[in-house]
Amino acid sequence: MATAASGEDGLKLLREQRPDLIVLDVMLPGIDGFEVCRRIRRTDQLPIILLTARNDDIDVVVGLESGADDYVVKPVQGRVLDARIRAVLRRGEREANDSATFGSLVIDRAAMTVTKNGEDLQLTPTELRLLLELSRRPGQALSRQQLLRLVWEHDYLGDSRLVDACVQRLRAKVEDVPSSPTLIRTVRGVGYRLDAPQ
């Protein structure tokens, strides 16, 4: 385990070492945790958990949209944080054994890759898990609660904004027109489903 006291030091340390997971405090001296997360996401898909005392909805949304896989509010008991870390790492280890095609989108579960029009998409681990879960049940609506359980491995409904923020990020990568999605559809009052384009 390695620690850094500032965002700049953390980015430098990341260039020198390859951790399995990053627990990132939002309130850092220098550049804040949101910006550190964004910079990491430009080049790396390592799992990132944001740890912060800021629990306003807007902060959670900003954190998730910056690319975090989970958002944990302080104060948090050590065993709870350990459980969230184990859950994020477990999700990254899940194996799959087939592929699925949705129009120009091809999901290769064995290789854990997604291509669109033949080009590799750079998805975060959580975005990939969300797409895998939706693609296992094409045409079936999954509630936010189900997706929290399947993708994030916890089911506190207050965390449903995790699902919404991740869906928005995923749509930006897989949809031709993210504001008018044809693949990942919203099922009003329920959640989301993955449709093959007409």
Rank of each mutant, 00 (worst) to 15 (best):
G158H: 07
D82E: 15
N117T: 01
D98F: 13
L170Y: 06
T115P: 02
S99K: 11
K74V: 03
L183G: 01
Q122H: 10
Q77S: 11
S160G: 00
H154T: 13
T126K: 10
R169N: 08
G103W: 08
L128K: 08
S160L: 01
L89S: 07
G78M: 06
I85M: 09
R144W: 00
D69A: 08
L128T: 02
Q122W: 04
R86K: 15
I107F: 03
A87S: 11
Q77R: 14
V167M: 06
L148G: 03
L89K: 12
D164E: 14
L132F: 11
L162D: 15
L105Q: 07
R144Q: 06
R129N: 14
R109Y: 05
A196M: 15
S104K: 12
T101C: 12
V167G: 09
E93R: 14
I85W: 11
P75D: 02
E119T: 10
V187Q: 05
R161W: 10
L81K: 04
V177G: 00
R161Q: 07
L132I: 13
G139Q: 09
R94V: 15
V76T: 13
E95M: 10
Q77C: 02
D70C: 07
V167S: 06
D69N: 13
D69G: 11
P178E: 02
L148I: 04
I107G: 07
V88P: 02
E127A: 15
W152L: 05
G67M: 04
K173W: 14
R91I: 04
E153P: 01
D159P: 00
G67Q: 11
T101D: 13
E133G: 02
L147T: 10
T186Y: 01
V73I: 15
G191K: 02
R91P: 00
P75T: 05
L183Y: 06
V72S: 00
L150C: 04
V106P: 06
D70L: 12
V177H: 06
V174C: 08
L89I: 04
V187Y: 02
V163L: 01
L162A: 12
G67I: 09
P178V: 00
L81C: 05
T101G: 10
L121F: 14
L123S: 12
G92R: 05
V163F: 00
G92C: 07
A110R: 15
R129Q: 12
D164M: 09
G118W: 04
R161E: 07
A83F: 10
D164G: 06
R86C: 07
L131H: 08
